[in-house]
Each structure stands twice: as C-alpha cells, then as structure tokens.
Amino acid sequence: MAAGGDHGSPDSYRSPLASRYASPEMCFVFSDRYKFRTWRQLWLWLAEAEQTLGLPITDEQIQEMKSNLENIDFKMAAEEEKRLRHDVMAHVHTFGHCCPKAAGIIHLGATSCYVGDNTDLIILRNALDLLLPKLARVISRLADFAKERASLPTLGFTHFQPAQLTTVGKRCCLWIQDLCMDLQNLKRVRDDLRFRGVKGTTGTQASFLQLFEGDDHKVEQLDKMVTEKAGFKRAFIITGQTYTRKVDIEVLSVLASLGASVHKICTDIRLLANLKEMEEPFEKQQIGSSAMPYKRNPMRSERCCSLARHLMTLVMDPLQTASVQWFERTLDDSANRRICLAEAFLTADTILNTLQNISEGLVVYPKVIERRIRQELPFMATENIIMAMVKAGGSRQDCHEKIRVLSQQAASVVKQEGGDNDLIERIQVDAYFSPIHSQLDHLLDPSSFTGRASQQVQRFLEEEVYPLLKPYESVMKVKAELCL
C-alpha cells in the first residue's frame, strides 16, 4: 500500500493539533497551500530580480507567473513527485505547466533550498508574528487579574506546605514575570531571523556568478533584492546548502521555554482548584465526569500541561538535527523538520489560546482563602504575639514557653481530632496574655502579614508589564474561544 493518505478522510490519521486544537490561522501558515504558494512567490521574486539585473526574462513571463501564483494543481504535483521522487522539481514542473512561456526560467540558477529553506524562514517569521500578540493578550488578562487582587491576602506555599502570606495578585505576578520573559525572547528570536537568500547549491553562489558572467556586484544585488522582497532586513552571508540548523534550535528553545512557563502556571491553577481557592472557567453544560456528576475538573489547565510537556520535548529534535548536518548538509534534517517545526508552533498556539481562555474567566473564592488563612495564621502570628507581650512588660522566655504549650495543644486538636485551630481562643482565655487581649485582632490582621506584596504588584505592572504590552494595544480586544 502506498504511503500517505487522504487526510480529510475519517479513515486516515490526522494530527489532533490540526484537527482538534490549533487555530485556523496557525494551521494555514503550515498548510501545503501556504507552503507551495510561497515557493511560487519566491520563484517570481527571483525572476523579477534577475530581470532587473539584466537576464533575458520578459515582462510577459513575469506576468504569467504572477497570474498563476494561486493556480496550484495539487493532484498534478503529487503525481509528479511520485514520478520524480523530488518535491521541488515536482512543483517546478507543475508551475511550468500553467506558465508555459515562463517554464524555462522558473528556478533559474537556484537549488531546492532556495524555495525550501527560504519558505521555512518566512513561515517561522509569520508563525512567530501570530504567537506574539496571543502571548501579549494572556499577559494582559493576567495583569488585569493581578491588579484587581493585588491586596487580597492568601496563604503562600513553599514545598506545598503553608508559608508566609502573600497576595493573590502577587502570586499571579510570578506567572506574568515568566511570560514577559517569554514574550521578550519570542520577539528577540523573531527579529534575529535572517533570510537564507540566493546562495546556490553549497552556499557559494557559483551558479549565479556564472549567470551574471562573473559580476560579483550583481550577485550581491540579486541576494539583497530577493531578501528585501521577502520582507527581511538581512540575509546570511555564510550558508551551506541550507541555512544553519542552529536557527531551528533557537526558535524551538524559546517555544519550549514558553511551554515550561505555561505548565507551571496551569499546575498552580490545578492545585488551587483542589484547594477550592480558584477555578478555571466551567461552562453551564460542561460535564466533569461521566460517573461523578459533582466533579469540576480543571480540564483546560490539564490540557495545557499535557501539550506543554510535548512542546518542551520537541527542542531535542533540532538539537540532534543540527549535530548531524555533515559538511554542507545531509538530508537527516528533512523529514524531522517537516514534523517538529509545525508541531512546535501548533502546540504553542494551542496552549496560548487555551491559557487566554482560562485567564479571561478565572474565578476566585475569597471566603475559602480566608478560612485557610484562619487555619494557619495563628501559628504564624506567634512571633508577633511574643513581641507584643514583651512590649507590655512580659518575659520573652516565659511567653515563648506559654505559646509553645498552647500551640501544641491547638495542633493536637487540628491533627488528632480534625478540629479547627483554636490557638487564639486559648490565648484569649489565658490570664497571662490579658495585657494584649485587646491587640489580638490587630495582630491577626492578614494584611499585616503580606509585606509589600501589593506595592510590588503595582510597581511591576507599571514599570515592566504595561510598557512591554504597549506595541500590542491594537490587538488586545480579541477574545479566545474554545470549541473543545
């Protein structure tokens, strides 16, 4: 049975990233139509530049190519590739079939990587351009969430054990800070992308030097003109047959890092959902379990974690691919890159769409948070109580021993009897502590235990987050809708 299948058929496997999760716009960027249309555009740009620099290419040939950029006979191309065992030459023939007058000058002087690699770089750039505003929107939604809850005390956790208090907004800023680093890295790697350009079979530009009869300047002009037509500021000066596969490492490393950030955020949300302090959106008709109707599973956060793990592992592909590119190139890269580049971007696209949807509907339960604080705060307040007693004339050592005994009794009630923490009640009825009984409410005010959390939130948002989001103001209103 021949390899390949009808990918629109229910009898043929289709990647869930495309069929179930990723956005239509990201799927289109990695589609065959987008790819092969870009090949034709690159052939047109090459012909236009070659004509401008004096090669015998007519206006009629150029116009014929322009008129057929979208006229792609995919069936013919597939048949040609089956016959020739070469995808680029299959599309040269297919393009030439609908451009008979231009057929002889299509791909003039070029090698397969002229269309293959340059198209990949265009796709990487455009895919990054799709991700950047999506990530900015996630940051914006979380920034709104953090600002609104900047002063809401909550129990902090280290080692997932109760620690000092923080605020809900401050905790959210930990998430935002990681995503801001990801946004900066995505922008950097996007701006650092260079075009492969017009380089020939081993990167020496020998074929173009021959076409222009040894004119170095025209060869350099050709490279520059096509690079500018493709919208790049610069091209690699040095290439082998391909652009260095280190570029793929750079791009997928940034995406993998984004995956790590999203995994951490969504894990926190899942843990908070278990504590009943916070939940992701839950639709009115949504079913959490087929057997347990009360369940409210954090399905979206779980999906993000599941896909983020996949995204983090994909960076190993370009690392290994770059390491086995012998001399000017081997074909070890080809099949692998067809999979890992598309999957990385479709996965990143999915987790950003999902995280935006989550961040637009996060639900906080202040009463649950308050109750958990009441359970733990008495123990945390013991040092403040000791200091207040010393100020009232008591002995630190005597007070410490009193607190120690009462704390152990209260802990026994919590752990052995399943009761509430009654340390404060014990202190309130103990005559030894009568000098500070009137101060206990103040000493137990949760806001006095959150330090500068709310001020940190305000400063972080104003100095770091809002300036970073400013270039994306025009796209901030787009909502994230999930079908599944």
Rank of each mutant, 00 (worst) to 15 (best):
A256H: 04
A78N: 13
N336I: 14
Y365V: 08
R338S: 02
P446L: 04
I403N: 07
M65A: 00
N68G: 11
L352P: 01
P100N: 09
E280N: 00
S407W: 00
F282D: 09
M312W: 05
I386R: 02
Q439P: 04
L108I: 12
E328C: 06
A392D: 08
Y365H: 12
D191A: 09
Q61P: 04
S434E: 13
A308V: 05
L355E: 01
E228N: 08
G116V: 15
E302R: 01
G8A: 15
L331M: 06
K246E: 02
K367S: 11
L130Y: 09
Q177L: 13
D441Y: 08
C173Q: 04
T330I: 03
H437T: 10
F379P: 06
Y114N: 01
N384P: 14
Y294P: 01
V475T: 14
Q320A: 10
L222P: 01
I265S: 12
G259I: 00
N353W: 06
T166P: 07
G4V: 15
R374A: 08
E417G: 12
M292Q: 03
L275W: 14
N353E: 15
R374P: 03
G109K: 01
G393Q: 08
D317M: 08
L130Q: 08
D420G: 04
E464H: 05
P100E: 11
R452A: 14
R196P: 01
D87N: 02
R194Y: 07
L128V: 12
A308F: 03
Q408S: 15
T58D: 11
Q408R: 13
I269D: 00
S306N: 01
L183H: 13
Q210E: 15
Q161W: 00
F449D: 05
L135N: 06
L352D: 04
L84Y: 10
S454F: 14
F232C: 04
R329V: 03
R149Y: 09
D87T: 00
E228D: 11
R141T: 15
K229R: 07
N384F: 05
T382F: 03
D332W: 03
S290V: 02
A381R: 04
H437M: 06
P56N: 11
P10G: 10
I249E: 01
G203N: 01
A273V: 07
A256P: 03
D11P: 15
V363Q: 06
R374S: 10
M299F: 06
V413I: 12
S151D: 11
C399S: 14
K276P: 01
I403Y: 06
F232T: 02
L255N: 06
D332G: 01
P293C: 05
W175T: 03
D129F: 13
W43G: 00
V219A: 06
L275D: 09
H93A: 15
M312V: 08
L17V: 15
R196L: 14
L468P: 04
I386Y: 04
N336W: 03
R20I: 04
G169C: 02
D317S: 10
Q397F: 02
D59F: 11
T267S: 13
P471A: 15
F36W: 15
Y21V: 01
A388S: 08
V251E: 03
Q408M: 05
K470Q: 13
I358Y: 05
R40M: 00
R137W: 06
H7P: 12
A230G: 06
T154N: 05
F232R: 01
R37C: 09
I62Y: 06
L255H: 12
I57S: 03
G200L: 01
L42D: 00
D445C: 14
P162S: 10
I351T: 14
H217E: 11
E417A: 09
Y21A: 00
T158F: 01
R37Y: 15
D445Y: 09
E220C: 09
T239M: 05
L461K: 04
L53H: 05
N297I: 01
M312E: 05
